[in-house]
């Protein structure tokens, strides 16, 4: 379903260039729960962003099914993301001036959902945010913020949820809760790809990929 073929991403810095991803090839099947692990700075986030069609690789191909993401135009890729992908980030990235319910509903307009209200209400209840529905993000705990982000990622029922260190800012209880929700989504048939440097997600994984200095490490 998701395939990287010989992907290299090179960054230029004041001190020269370095490869955040170095000739990476990997494949994630539909319905898999994949965990990409590695130390900080090994290229995990770059890999996830490249998967998501948000960071053009310097070389190589990124395929979703048989579609090459980076052969699409910017607007087409945005539309593709809206319909197929959900995102969860370590820093939550909630829109500060929208209520929790409005944040959850945010992807609806981009994806052109007809009646997103019912689905949003279900997700808000399911993730234990009903009493926070009309609150601002600033009034929420870190765990509640991340559960809001998870609900937002699930609203469009995307084929894949991409999560970048989703438990990085959470205490163990909240981390378990968030991973539990992602695991439940996976059980419902969704594909989940998590990048993390922690061990918590491994228990849910169908596949664990180790990344080391921008390369797949087959002997971690």
């Amino acid at each position: 379903m998701l395939r990287l073929e010989n992907v290299t991403k090179t960054y230029r810095t004041r001190n020269g260039t370095f490869n955040a991803l170095d000739d990476v090839s990997l494949h994630i099947e539909a319905g898999e729960f994949a965990v990409i692990r590695g130390a900080s700075g090994c290229g995990k986030t770059t890999l996830l962003m490249t998967f998501a069609g948000m960071l053009r690789p310097t070389r190589g191909t990124v395929l979703f099914g048989d579609r090459d993401l980076y052969r699409m135009g910017s607007a087409e890729r945005a539309c593709f993301r809206a319909q197929n992908l959900g995102f969860v980030f370590q820093m939550f990235h909630l829109v500060p001036y929208l209520s929790i319910a409005e944040n959850v509903l945010l992807p609806a307009a981009a994806a052109g959902l007809a009646d997103p209200g019912t689905r949003a209400a279900e997700l808000i209840d399911k993730l234990g945010l009903a009493s926070r529905r009309h609150h601002d993000p600033t009034q929420l705990s870190a765990g509640e913020k991340q559960r809001t982000a998870v609900a937002r990622a699930m609203l469009n029922e995307p084929r894949v949820i991409l999560a970048d260190e989703p438990t990085g800012n959470l205490d163990p209880d909240n981390a378990r809760a968030v991973l539990g929700h992602l695991a439940e989504y996976h059980k419902g048939g969704g594909t989940v790809v998590i990048v993390t440097h922690g061990p918590e997600a491994a228990q849910f994984a169908d596949k664990i990929i180790h990344l080391n200095a921008g390369r797949i490490d087959s002997n971690p």
Partner: peptide, 10 residues
């Protein structure tokens, strides 16, 4: 960033 990530066009 998040709006573009979730599919809002530029």
């Amino acid at each position: 960033g998040i709006m573009r990530a979730i599919g809002y066009r530029a």
